[in-house]
């Protein structure tokens, strides 16, 4: 059992299963803040999947995309929290 098979049949199914769980919370979430948290976690799972995929295809260039995704995910969380606070204050 080499590394590629382990990643293909062991790791990627675990990551997709956790994405499904997060998506169920995204659909169910009672408040909007739950949805922001689940988007945040989905971005982090995406970074992990990109890193695993770069090992699988032997292409280290994919890690650049992981870095950009990490930056954008943090920015979107900050923007969402700022917007929610301002919206609540003005009405």
């Amino acid at each position: 059992m080499n590394l590629n098979n382990f990643i293909l049949y062991g790791i990627l199914p675990i990551l997709s299963l956790s994405t499904i769980f997060v998506f169920i919370r995204f659909l169910k979430g009672p408040s909007i803040v739950d949805r922001v948290v689940s988007i945040d976690l989905m971005v982090i799972i995406g970074i992990g999947a990109i890193a695993v995929y770069s090992i699988l295809t032997d292409q280290p260039t994919f890690l650049d995309i992981a870095m950009v995704v990490a930056l954008i995910g943090f920015l979107s969380t900050v923007a969402f929290s700022y917007y929610l606070e301002k919206r609540n204050r003005n009405d």
Partner: peptide, 11 residues
């Protein structure tokens, strides 16, 4: 991967 799975189950 198991830690990420635990995080999503916790969520």
């Amino acid at each position: 991967a198991i830690a990420i799975l635990l995080a999503s189950i916790g969520l």
